[in-house]
C-alpha cells in the first residue's frame, strides 16, 4: 500500500508535460521539375520521446502527404531514415526532438547522395561499393562440407570484427565524408569499414583479394583522416578506425 502511494506521489510530482511545439522545416525538391530546394515549415507538438521521424510522419498524416521520406523499422535497425537534421547526418527515427535542443528543426536529404525527391536519396553507389568489397566470408569449404560442421571462433577472434558488423548501411558516414563530396569514384567509409570487417574475421580467407580491390586510385588511400564518418555513425562502427587498421595491412604493419 505504501508502495502504491509512493508511485502515485511520484506521478503527481512529474505530471505529463503539456506538449510543446517545434517548427519543422522540410526540404522539398523534385529533380524532375524543380530548379532549387525549397523549405516548407510546420509547427508540430511533441513530447519527451517524440522523434524527428515521428514529426515528419505527423506532417504526412495531417498536412502534406506528398513529403517523400524513406523509413521502415523506426528503431535504428534498417538504415532507411538517414537525413541531415539541423545540418548533421543522423537517423530520423533515432533522434529525439528534445536532444536537439532547438526550437527549429531543419531536415534535408543526406549530402553525397543523388536526391530522388525531398528527403529520399538513391543508394545505388553505396550498395555497389559495398558489394564490390565482397561483404561475405570467402573460403573454399563451407560449414556444410567441412568436418567440423561449424567454424568456431574464440571470443577474442569475435572481438576483432564484431563492432564493424553492426553496420546497418544507413550511409550517414558516406554523407559526412569530405572525400565523397568531390570524388565520385571513391569507395567510401561504409564499404571500407566492411572490407575491414571481413578481412579481420578469422573464418575469412579473402584478405588478399579484398585488399587488392581497395588498393586503387579511388580506394582506401583517398581517405585523409577527417574522421567525420565515425562521428556520425549511429551504431558505433568507427569506419575511420577500420580504414586505419586496413592501411596497416597494406603498409606491412599487420598481416
Amino acid at each position: 500500500m505504501a508502495q502504491v502511494s509512493s508511485i502515485a506521489e511520484e506521478q503527481a510530482s512529474t505530471p505529463l508535460s503539456p506538449s510543446k511545439s517545434v517548427t519543422l522545416r522540410i526540404a522539398r525538391f523534385n529533380p524532375e521539375h524543380d530548379s532549387e530546394r525549397k523549405f516548407m515549415e510546420f509547427t508540430i507538438p511533441y513530447k519527451k520521446w517524440t522523434t524527428v521521424l515521428d514529426i515528419i510522419l505527423e506532417v504526412k498524416k495531417y498536412f502534406d502527404h506528398s513529403v517523400a521520406v524513406r523509413y521502415s523499422c523506426r528503431q535504428a535497425t534498417c538504415g532507411s531514415c538517414g537525413m541531415k537534421i539541423n545540418g548533421k547526418p543522423m537517423l530520423a527515427c533515432f533522434t529525439k526532438i528534445t536532444e536537439l535542443d532547438s526550437d527549429v528543426i531543419t531536415v534535408e536529404p543526406m549530402n553525397n547522395f543523388p536526391i530522388i525527391r525531398d528527403l529520399a536519396v538513391r543508394f545505388e553507389r553505396l550498395f555497389e561499393s559495398h558489394h564490390k568489397i565482397k561483404p561475405y566470408l570467402i573460403r573454399d569449404d563451407s560449414e556444410i562440407t567441412s568436418n567440423e560442421k561449424e567454424f568456431l571462433q574464440s571470443p577474442k577472434e569475435v572481438e576483432q570484427y564484431i563492432q564493424f558488423a553492426n553496420c546497418i548501411k544507413c550511409g550517414l558516414c558516406n554523407s559526412a565524408c569530405p572525400t565523397m563530396a568531390t570524388d565520385s569514384s571513391f569507395v567510401g567509409p561504409q564499404a571500407l569499414a566492411q572490407a575491414y570487417r571481413y578481412v579481420a574475421d578469422s573464418r575469412d580467407k579473402g584478405k588478399n583479394s579484398r585488399l587488392k580491390i581497395i588498393d586503387e586510385s579511388h580506394g582506401i588511400w583517398r581517405c585523409h583522416f577527417a574522421g567525420s564518418c565515425s562521428q556520425v555513425c549511429p551504431k558505433g562502427v568507427d569506419p575511420a578506425m577500420g580504414i586505419q587498421l586496413l592501411r596497416g595491412y597494406l603498409l606491412g604493419f599487420r598481416s
Binding site: T179, T182, D183, S184, R222
Partner: peptide
C-alpha cells in the same frame, strides 16, 4: 591526389 579527387574521368585521370 588532389586533382584525382577534384574531377573524375578516364582521359582526365
Amino acid at each position: 591526389v588532389i586533382l584525382l579527387e577534384l574531377k573524375q574521368g578516364k582521359v582526365y585521370e
